[in-house]
Design a binder for these strands. Structure first.
Lengths: 259, 259
DNA sequence: CGCACAATTGAAGCAGCTCAAAATAAGTGG
DNA sequence: CCACTTATTTTGAGCTGCTTCAATTGTGCG
């Protein structure tokens, strides 16, 4: 696998430079690739996986089922995401990860990650940073579910997805594919399917977005951001901490914050 | 500061053994101590702190204010918690951390943590693990806010707080002090103050808990757990991953999972 | 073509909200 | 230790954003 197409490297380079040696090591991790169908668990609740899953293609989600059978989707995982480093350090899964579409995933043994983080603390911190961003997204979702109206929540999620997909090259202009059902959207936002449907109509009706099948086009980015009370800083895109700059001089990540 | 009383060491030992040399290093981190009053920001939104805060005494919380002025509290930070490792690797704060009571906190410079994680990858992973547990708690709160009823949410939170306080020795029998207002509880659970009040009365009325001022006594632990749909596994208390066992043989953390 | 799933619409219900005011408790200065 | 002020808890009552239930329409696909 060539450097350029290794999504793990691209992922880590968002936050700091990656040396050639590090790249070589990272390339070595992606040898076991699997295809998984839609609506399958990549990792089940309570499991103790022995490898991490890196999503190469497709959409997945973290979710939990509560008493009464309701489901809460806690995050959307898109290509480039390592979706269970959690299992690496915590052992037993306290939630499940399931596919929303057919997926292609790379399996990375925990032992390989352990070796890597032992010998290359900087890479360890880079992975760590990724999990901190995951946590920032959890927090933002919590804020939305707890304190924002349905319309604001939906708008906010669309803004987030747009930026995240853009970062991995999965948008064209102001459009992107969001191949998930309204029921799934509801489970992610803590809303009923019916209300998701009505809310999407509202957002379409006011000219903020256009929906055609699974394709979503953002007609009025500023308006959607306003509607969604959206401040992208929690995604920590295209930024490095002082600490990381202090470590790796010379490289500057491409900034694209003109949002 | 003696080893036994260093809450950072106690915190890390929950998940894996800490060598004597590591303990010495960790002791060296706790030299700057500060007292902070109630309702003060330990770290403000958008700041770029240069040190982490370890809470020695008192309660704090992560929070965010949304458009319209509503507040969502995203986590409760209790003694022993390092409450912004986030800032270490991500630089700019995407939320604020404020005190709920007067607090005593230790300030740990980012540079010290950087050195530590560079030279002692195992300690780095231990800190990382802590942030992953934080994330697990975020997820669980999200599930509650999104999919559980008010009474279930309140009961769940009480269960969680009980276990977390117990782990740092801040409970006596089935009682603990929870010196936060009902308004703050509401901000944490995405509920109104009025509804929190009525829900607490419901939980008292059915004999699950007793409230006397800031002191909460759990009368019926099993019942409260049932009411709160509470499964403590997300707290990852008293457990180590295979990976960590693989690394440090010989030591076994005390297990106390008879819950 | 027809099945199965997904989106849409209508209508009624309710969990939790808001507003407003009263009752307690917790400070605080004298 | 009291009198006064301020914060918190508690209660009542009306309201609403979202849910639930149930049915209809659309759509992808073997």
């Amino acid at each position: 696998m060539s450097k350029a197409s290794n999504p793990l490297i691209r992922h880590l380079e968002q936050f700091g430079s990656v040396s050639d040696e590090e790249k070589r090591l990272l390339d070595g991790l992606l040898n076991r690739i699997e295809e998984v169908g839609r609506d399958q668990d990549l990792v089940g609740y309570g499991e103790q996986p022995s490898d991490c899953k890196l999503i190469l293609e497709g959409f997945a989600c973290r979710y939990k089922i509560v008493e009464g059978g309701k489901r809460q989707i806690m995050s959307l995982q898109i290509p480039g995401d390592i979706c269970d480093l959690q299992g690496f350090l915590l052992g037993r899964m306290d939630h499940a990860i399931g596919t929303l579409t057919p997926c292609r995933v790379a399996l990375i043994p925990h032992t390989a990650i352990l070796d890597l983080t032992d010998t290359h603390p900087r890479l360890g911190r880079a992975l760590w940073r990724g999990t901190l961003i995951d946590a920032a997204v959890f927090r933002e979702w919590m804020v939305g579910i707890g304190r924002r109206s349905a319309a604001t929540r939906v708008a906010h999620l669309l803004c987030e997805i747009k930026l995240r997909l853009e970062a991995v090259g999965l948008t064209e202009d102001d459009s992107f594919d969001l191949p998930i059902t309204q029921a799934e959207l509801g489970d992610a936002l803590g809303l009923s399917t019916v209300h998701i449907n009505r809310t999407l109509q509202e957002l379409s009706g006011t000219g903020l977005i256009v929906i055609r099948g699974a394709k979503i086009t953002i007609r009025d980015w500023q308006g959607l951001k306003r509607k969604g009370d959206f401040d992208p800083s929690y995604l920590h895109q295209g930024r490095r901490s002082d600490i990381e700059r202090h470590l790796s001089r010379g490289h500057a990540p491409s900034q694209s914050d003109a949002l």
